[in-house]
Simulated assay, not measured.
Amino acid sequence: MTVGASSSTDECASYSDYGSAVDLFAPGSAITSAWIGSDTATNTISGTSMATPHVAGAAAIYLADHPAATPAQVASALTTAATAKAVINPGTSTTDKLLYIGRRFENAADYPILDFSTAQSPITVTSVPGNAPATLRVSVDIKHTAIGDLQIDLIAPEGSAYRLKNYSDDGSTDNVLTSTPSTLLLKLPQEPGSSKSAIIPDATSQRLTSGLCSSDLVRTLSG
C-alpha cells in the first residue's frame, strides 16, 4: 500500500506523496513515537514515515480479527473502511480517503431541502456512553445553491442545538461539501465548564432551517 501523510487539520501535508498510486492517508505531522538512544527515548517528527506506521498498526488490528486474510484482503479492508472526502486538497488524481479503524455513524439517505422549511437528517448512535469529545468533527455534504440561505444545527438527543453554520455564511457559494476546509473542520462547541462537547449517545439529528441540513458523517442532501 502507498500511504500519504495528513496534517492535524486533515490537510494533505506539504511533504506528502500524492498521485493515483496513493491508497489512503494517515496522520503524519508532529507524531510522537519511540526513538533511538534508550528504551524510553521519544521524538516528535513529521513525514510519511510517521503516517505509514498508523496503517501498519491498523493492518495488525485487522489481522488479529481476520488471521487468514491475505495482504490484498487487508489492503482492501483498510481502503474500504477509510473515510472518503476527509483529506483537504489531497493533490491531483489523489484519493481523499483518511485511515479509519474506529466506529462511524452516518445517515445514508438523501433528504430534500425545501425553501422556508426545516429538514432533518437523523443519525442513531448506539453503545457509545458519555459525552462526545471536544475534538469531534461533523462532516457535511449538502447540495444547495446559495448556501447563505442555510442555517445548520446539530441536535443532541436531549434537544440541545449546536450551531454549525449561520445564515449568510459563505453567501452565494453553492453546496456545503466535506472537501471544503471551512465546512469540513466545523467543530462542536464545548459544554460550559467541561472539556467535552455535550452530545451523543443514542440518536442525534441534524436540522436544516430554511433549506438546511447536516449529517454527522455525511451523505448528499438534495435541494
Rank of each mutant, 00 (worst) to 15 (best):
G4R: 05
G4M: 04
S6N: 05
S8E: 15
C12M: 15
C12Y: 06
Y18M: 08
D23V: 07
L24E: 00
L24N: 00
A26S: 06
I31Q: 00
I31L: 00
D39F: 11
A41F: 10
A41K: 07
A41R: 07
T42F: 09
T42H: 09
T44G: 05
T44K: 10
T44N: 08
I45K: 15
I45E: 15
A56M: 08
I61G: 04
Y62D: 03
L63E: 02
H66K: 05
P67S: 11
A68P: 09
A69G: 01
Q73G: 06
A75R: 09
T80A: 12
A81I: 05
T83N: 09
T83F: 06
A84V: 10
A84T: 12
A86G: 02
N89Q: 13
T92Y: 03
T95N: 02
D96G: 05
G102S: 04
R104K: 15
R104D: 10
F105Q: 03
N107P: 05
A108N: 13
D110A: 12
D115M: 09
D115L: 12
T118C: 09
P122D: 07
T126R: 02
S127I: 13
V128W: 08
G130Y: 02
N131S: 13
P133E: 05
L136R: 09
L136F: 15
R137N: 06
R137Y: 12
S139D: 10
D141S: 11
I142S: 03
K143A: 15
A146V: 06
I147E: 01
G148M: 02
G148F: 01
G148H: 01
D149F: 06
I155E: 03
P157H: 06
P157K: 01
P157F: 01
Y162M: 14
Y162Q: 09
R163L: 12
L164C: 02
L164G: 00
L164M: 06
D169Q: 14
G171I: 04
D174R: 02
V176Y: 00
L177Q: 08
T178C: 15
K187Q: 11
L188D: 03
P189N: 10
P189L: 05
Q190E: 12
E191S: 12
G193P: 01
S194V: 11
S194G: 06
S194T: 13
S195G: 13
K196G: 07
K196N: 14
S197Q: 05
P201G: 11
D202H: 11
D202L: 14
D202I: 15
A203S: 10
A203N: 10
T204S: 04
S205Y: 11
T209P: 03
S210R: 04
S210I: 09
G211V: 03
R219P: 11
T220L: 07
